[in-house]
Simulated assay, not measured.
Amino acid sequence: MEAQMVELARAAGTAVVTLMATDAWERTRDGVVALWRRVSPSRADGVEGELEATRGDLLAARENGDDLTEQELREEWVGRVRRLLREQPDVAVELRRVLAELAPEPQDVGTGAVHMRAEASGSGRVYQAGRDQHITER
């Protein structure tokens, strides 16, 4: 499987799980199920059930501060999407469309430019983000 498809699967699986805990959950579920219904109708109902189960697990993991479970859930969906793309590579165009529809609306941030500067010394660390940031340290 080419690297571009693997990266698409990673982006899609990560986005699906991330959006499960947001107000965009229902749109996300509906978009993913509709995609599966078009490309693999016999599996669509099962995918819908798996999405709901994953969401329950994700919400419980977040409530308990269980970052490892959240990471595992993302990887599970990355694998599901990767297998779908391996079986039907032509679905990549539609998957990109679904992801674009699920992307959050851009917010008015003036010019849209972000300028950051940071310095760290010794054992110091710097974490900067122009938007969302997720840090998992071990």
Rank of each mutant, 00 (worst) to 15 (best):
R62K: 08
G112V: 05
E2T: 01
A3I: 12
Q71G: 01
V16L: 14
A21S: 11
P89I: 05
Q71E: 13
S40V: 14
R29S: 02
D132Y: 09
E48M: 01
G122E: 15
H115M: 07
V93K: 12
V17K: 13
L51I: 02
A24K: 08
D132T: 06
E7R: 13
V114W: 08
V91N: 05
L8G: 00
A11C: 06
V114R: 10
E137I: 11
T54W: 09
I135Q: 06
R125I: 14
A100D: 07
L85H: 07
G110A: 09
E7G: 00
E105L: 12
A24P: 01
A113I: 07
R37Y: 08
T14V: 03
L58W: 06
R125F: 10
E75S: 00
H115T: 10
R83C: 02
A100S: 05
E72S: 07
P106H: 14
E50R: 09
E87F: 01
E72I: 05
V93R: 15
R38I: 00
A11F: 03
T22Q: 14
Q88C: 08
L99D: 05
P106F: 13
R138V: 06
R96I: 01
S40E: 14
W36R: 10
L68H: 03
S123G: 10
V32K: 07
A21W: 08
G13Y: 13
L84E: 04
E87C: 02
V81N: 03
S121F: 10
A12L: 02
M1Q: 11
D132R: 15
R74G: 09
G31R: 09
G130Y: 01
R29G: 04
T28P: 06
A9G: 08
L84N: 01
G112P: 10
L73R: 07
A24M: 07
G65E: 04
Q71A: 13
Q133N: 12
A24I: 03
Q4A: 08
L59Y: 11
S121L: 06
D132E: 14
E119H: 15
L51D: 03
D67V: 00
R131P: 01
S42W: 11
E94G: 01
E72N: 12
T54E: 09
R27W: 04
V33T: 01
A34V: 15
T28R: 08
G124I: 06
E7D: 07
V114H: 13
W77H: 13
E94Q: 09
A11N: 13
